[in-house]
């Protein structure tokens, strides 16, 4: 157990802190706070943390709203079991494949641009807006939502079934509520009340996303994982201690989130 669980986690935290303080590493010249000062006075770390938090919040928020709307207001999910099974397709699509799909559909020479050309909307790829590797991260957010939304939908559909939300909605409508009102005031709060744990996990997953930002993200600012991986750089050894400062910051943020998540669970396990 210690080889597979305790050692890796302790090593990752310990090595990351030691390397960032100059205690280890082949260019090490003894303990120093130089790299921490450099990281916190520079823009890269702050930009990257804020950008990653922003992307994770937008993706989690949009996925939550979209999945709640689709589950509550479309009856098709609850009438056709096979349709729910179809949700497994985007859910199980690898991140790299999802990134490639978004690249081929939403890039300037992609499928959407070609369809619009045939409809007479665009005459050349330059008329199509930049949605991939763009400053507004549209493609990145779309790809991350495509992976997160099916997970939340499957989860909400499961709760709808196990918590018998349908019965409560019907009761509310019999007591005089309009159907929209019943969904908004009864179903949505019932689903939301059971979802903070999963929302926290999806937030953490999107915060540390790597493959999709690598394919679809902008060069500046970069998501945390991309920044760390590129700073670890085999080609710039002097950047390595900085990369470990970034790693330590990332590990602390995710560690705090995990500690809150574990503490919220009754009895720890």
């Amino acid at each position: 157990m210690s080889l597979l669980l305790v050692l890796p986690v302790v090593w990752v935290f310990g090595y990351s802190v030691c390397y960032s303080l100059g205690a280890v590493g082949f260019l090490s010249q003894g303990l120093t706070s130089h790299y921490w000062v450099q990281a916190f006075t520079g823009q890269r770390l702050a930009e990257s943390v804020l950008y990653s938090l922003f992307i994770a919040a937008v993706v989690t928020g949009c996925s939550l709203c979209l999945s709640l709307c689709l589950v509550c207001w479309l009856d098709a999910w609850r009438k056709h079991g096979r349709l729910v099974a179809l949700l497994c397709i985007p859910l199980s699509t690898p991140a790299g494949v999802m990134g490639f799909l978004v690249l081929q559909i939403f890039s300037r020479g992609g499928v959407l641009s070609r369809v619009l050309h045939h409809l007479g909307v665009c005459s050349s790829p330059d008329d199509f807006p930049v949605l991939v590797n763009d400053a507004n991260s549209v493609g990145l957010i779309l790809a991350l939502i495509s992976g997160t939304c099916p997970l939340l939908m499957l989860y909400f559909l499961r709760i709808w079934q196990t918590a018998k939300v349908d019965d409560y909605v019907q009761l509310a409508t019999r007591l005089g509520a309009a159907s929209g009102q019943a969904l908004r005031l009864v179903a949505v709060p019932m689903l939301l009340r059971r979802s903070p744990g999963l929302l926290m996990l999806t937030f953490a997953w999107n915060f540390g996303a790597w493959e999709i930002p690598l394919l679809l993200g902008s060069q500046s600012p970069r998501m945390m994982s991309v920044l760390i991986q590129q700073s670890t750089g085999q080609y710039a050894p002097e950047d390595r201690p900085l990369a470990f400062v970034f790693s330590t910051v990332y590990l602390v943020i995710v560690g705090i989130a995990t500690a809150i998540f574990v503490s919220r669970r009754s009895g720890g396990v």
């Binding site: 669980l5 305790v6 890796p8 986690v9 090593w11 990752v12 090595y15 990351s16 390397y19 996990l201 953490a204 997953w205 540390g208 996303a209 790597w210 945390m224 994982s225 760390i228 991986q229 670890t232 990369a243 470990f244 790693s247 990332y250 590990l251 995710v254 560690g255 989130a257 995990t258 500690a259 998540f261 574990v262 503490s263 669970r265 009895g267 720890g268 396990v269």
Partner: peptide, 28 residues
């Protein structure tokens, strides 16, 4: 054991980005 620390250690790899862990793990 129902230990909080053990639960934390089990859940942490769940949410960590593999590439960050791999960066730290490579030297070992």
């Amino acid at each position: 054991t129902r230990s909080w620390l053990l639960s934390f250690l089990v859940f942490l790899p769940w949410v960590l980005s593999p590439v960050v862990v791999a960066g730290c793990f490579y030297d070992l």
